[in-house]
Simulated assay, not measured.
Amino acid sequence: AAIIMGVKRGLFSNEAGLGSAPNVAAVAEVKHPVAQGIVQSLSVFIDTMILCSCTALIILLSGVYQPGMEVSGVILTQTAMASVVGEWGRVFISIALLLFVFTTLIYNYYLGENALGFFSEKRWLVQAYRVLVIGLVLWGSLQDLGTVFAFADVTMGLLAIANLIALALLFKVGLRLMRDYDGQIKAGVESPVFDPKQFADLDLDPEAWPEATPPLKVPSIGASVPTNVLHHR
């Protein structure tokens, strides 16, 4: 039971493998796609291993938690903070939660509308989606925490199934990219650069990964420089 709850809440905290984070990571400008993948994996470590562990330690070390007690979730965290730092800790948790919930709603709404625009540009679909989002927010505010988490677990599970299928199909491509990145690191390249020519068989976006151009050589002092080169510079 502890493992099941830990996996569900851990997945809920960092969304690793769900397919929501790549929407944002895809707009980052990096020299190599694996570099952004390393950043994403680091964010999962910070979110789950550090932040969630800190929250658990605050609750356990405060002495507030007792086996079998009915208080749980945010209320338990607030009570633990208040017992250690005073009542202002309860207010701090409330403000942090308010900001987290608001930004999460805006973030997930944006991802949904962006994905919907990829499939269709019809205006009525966007309007219907907005009504659905508002309806879900109102419904969630009237339900208990257990019902909300149960609904989130089901929907996130369906999202994970679709994303894991895509990950399985992209597994070989991912391995090729990792080997290319690791190979450049072993060769002494401090910041590996993705060369689209080596992956010509893939359907790459030329705007995202333009052809690498060789650096322009700077002539030595006293050497003559053609007029067209100076104009280009």
Rank of each mutant, 00 (worst) to 15 (best):
A162L: 15
H231A: 15
T55R: 02
A223D: 14
Y129I: 03
S224Y: 08
V64E: 13
K172N: 10
C54S: 08
A35T: 14
N114E: 05
A21I: 04
Q184G: 04
L111D: 10
A212K: 07
F171D: 00
N163D: 12
L132Q: 03
I58S: 01
V34K: 04
L145R: 03
V34G: 11
V7P: 00
A166H: 15
A200G: 04
Q40S: 10
S72L: 05
L159C: 15
L230M: 14
R9K: 14
V71G: 04
I93W: 01
V137T: 10
L175N: 03
L169W: 04
P67W: 15
R179L: 11
A168T: 12
G19L: 04
R123N: 05
L136A: 06
P196K: 00
L159G: 15
W124P: 05
I95H: 01
L132E: 02
V91Q: 12
E211L: 12
L164W: 01
Q184L: 05
A1W: 00
I95G: 04
L170Y: 05
I95E: 02
V189S: 02
V101Q: 15
P206H: 10
A115W: 05
Y109M: 14
W209P: 03
R130Q: 14
F118D: 04
G140A: 12
P206D: 11
E15I: 06
L18T: 03
L125E: 14
F199W: 03
L177A: 09
G135E: 01
A150Q: 05
G6K: 00
Y107T: 15
F149I: 11
I93A: 08
V85F: 11
F171L: 13
P196S: 03
F199R: 01
E70V: 15
A35G: 05
F100H: 11
G73W: 07
L164S: 11
G140T: 02
I58P: 00
V131C: 11
L142G: 03
Q143I: 06
R179M: 13
V154C: 03
A152T: 12
V64K: 06
S191E: 13
E113T: 14
A21S: 12
T104G: 03
F149T: 09
